[in-house]
Amino acid sequence: MEISPFVIFFASIFTSNVLLTNFLGMCSYLSISRDLKSSLGLGQAVIFVMTATTVLNYLVYHYILVPYELEYLMYIVFIIVIAAFVQLVEMVLERFLPNLYYTLGIFLPLITVNCAILGVALFMVIREYNLLQSLAYGAGGGIGWTLAILALAGIRQKVDETRLPKGLQGAGFAMIVTGIMALAFIGFSGIISIS
């Protein structure tokens, strides 16, 4: 069944949020979400890299790996494509847009090891999306991830001033907030669904 790219775009932001339902990109999500500004910076970088690498990986998979029957190399090739793309973006930004480089630069190397980027590429292959669907999924996934990290950063800034039980400080608390957020996002699931 063909799902419209628009449906995929909105579904990957709300109902099938890569972070809240597929648990992708948790590591940087937990460690960067201490303040809003760096969350936003990382979020922008993730949206950009995720959209671009999903499309790139789609092209590489369908025009290079499938014709030569090299699908089993998928993991290695995807991770190389992502690492090379991030490196390239870093160099281009440094050369031509130094201002943007200083705001996003520190976040770019982090993205290579962000499992959300690789995860979205793997989901794209498993769900057999076409090019437009992959583009929508990559962009929606990035925006959904950014939405989640911004929400958590906002909540954490407020909660930092309150007293928590000792064992719950830090990661434990962030995890419970994320769980409640995931519950709230389940509320969207009546609207659209792609599974």
Partner: peptide
């Protein structure tokens, strides 16, 4: 079975472990 519970259960385990060490 759904996603949110995974967060809650892991958070509880982290909480218990940290309390014991504290």
């Amino acid at each position: 079975v759904m996603a949110p519970s995974a967060f809650f259960v892991l958070a509880s385990i982290i909480w218990i472990a940290h309390s014991i060490t504290a």
